Amino acid sequence: MDFDFTDDQNALREAVARWVDKGFSFERRHALAKAGGAARAVYTELAELGLTGLAVPESMGGMGFGPVEAMVVMEELGRGLVNAPLVHGALVAPALLAAAPEALQADWLPRIADGSALVVLAHQERAARYQLRRVDTRATRQGEAWVLSGAKSVVPAGDEADAFIVPARLGGAAADESGIGLFLVERDAGGLAVRGYPTQDGARAAELTLASTPAALITDDGFGVLSRAVDIGIAAVCAEGVGLMERLTALTVEYMNTRKQFGVTLASFQALRHRIADVKMQLELARSMSYFASLKLGEPDAARRRAISQAKVQIGQSARYIGQQCVQLHGGIGVTDEYVGSHYFKRLTMLEMQYGDTLHHLGEVSSRMQDSAGVFA
């Protein structure tokens, strides 16, 4: 199998890397985090690069790129520790809106592509424990319109978004896959309350409360659409994680080559060299599984879901190992707020819990393992 990137993909990577080097220093990110984590201005700059149109069809003003291009972009944004909701607004939202009526697509997708609108998925609920099928928010029809009642938690960039895509139950029990609809709720809709707050990694999230809030129906058969869109988001955060781990490893190697102990650099000690070798092994395992996740997005549901969960498990394990080892190899400076390495570790910690933590996805992998290897055949 050919894992070489095309010239266009390499050019895209270089363009994003140049912007990161020139436009998003650690000092800028640190200042944004201290100010509360608002990142809409950064999102606008990414829109000027065309990145908000990555997954939007060309007919709607986007570039119509695929998962490999998204992976390339997210790796570079991860290396730069870029604080912007690109995964949620430019990759997940277009995948959800692809199931919407044509008029709704025509209203929102061009604005997503040019960055003038930020639409994010609001799907997490307090009792769900990462289960996409667990939806307690209710949708009620009132004449020709729909209203929603319920609550959503930890909505990324929720207090900066212009609209939300909200799963709500049309019928069935709270944990049924059937009976889930997807709705678009605009920020200024009546009955919608948004409470924003900063997150540990310097970004922002929000709690949403919906009380008979007007909404536009995207699809009344939402579980399959939601599952695929979340898988796209997982593949993207896996790629971001690879970029984060790669840069944190490079920072640690640089530190070991300059920091002296007993008159020699830390890199002179064989035991520490062995530890950094293990770190690099975990990095390459994570990179391989990130590629695997992106390449499997076009597969049928069962194969795709299993592959995505396998990748998320490896990313979570690698992120924890690399983060802990690199902090220990730095010593005390590795956990200070003024040092860039600690911010990579915090972002990796948050990323490990996004779209389901390692333990959740380990359970997903286990539930999908049907092969017996001939032992019980």
Rank of each mutant, 00 (worst) to 15 (best):
4 D>P: 00
6 T>D: 06
8 D>K: 08
11 A>V: 00
24 F>I: 01
32 L>E: 15
33 A>F: 11
36 G>R: 09
48 E>W: 04
56 V>T: 08
58 E>Q: 15
61 G>R: 04
63 M>W: 08
63 M>S: 13
87 V>P: 06
90 A>K: 05
92 V>P: 02
94 P>T: 01
96 L>V: 00
99 A>V: 01
102 E>F: 06
110 P>W: 14
117 A>D: 04
118 L>A: 02
124 Q>S: 05
125 E>T: 00
128 A>W: 14
130 Y>E: 06
134 R>F: 15
138 R>E: 08
139 A>R: 14
140 T>L: 15
145 A>I: 01
149 S>L: 12
151 A>F: 03
154 V>M: 14
155 V>L: 11
156 P>T: 03
156 P>K: 10
161 A>R: 13
175 A>G: 06
180 I>L: 15
197 Y>W: 05
197 Y>V: 01
203 A>L: 12
203 A>E: 09
207 E>P: 01
212 S>R: 14
221 D>H: 14
225 V>G: 05
226 L>K: 11
227 S>G: 00
232 I>C: 05
242 V>M: 07
244 L>H: 07
250 A>F: 13
251 L>D: 14
253 V>N: 11
264 V>D: 10
271 A>L: 11
272 L>K: 10
273 R>Q: 15
273 R>G: 03
277 A>I: 03
278 D>F: 09
283 L>T: 03
290 S>P: 03
293 A>F: 12
303 A>Y: 11
303 A>M: 12
304 R>A: 04
310 Q>D: 01
311 A>V: 00
316 G>N: 06
319 A>I: 00
321 Y>F: 14
321 Y>S: 04
327 V>I: 13
327 V>Y: 05
334 G>P: 12
340 V>K: 15
343 H>R: 12
344 Y>S: 02
346 K>F: 07
346 K>D: 08
349 T>D: 14
350 M>I: 00
354 Q>P: 00
356 G>V: 01
363 G>D: 12
364 E>P: 01
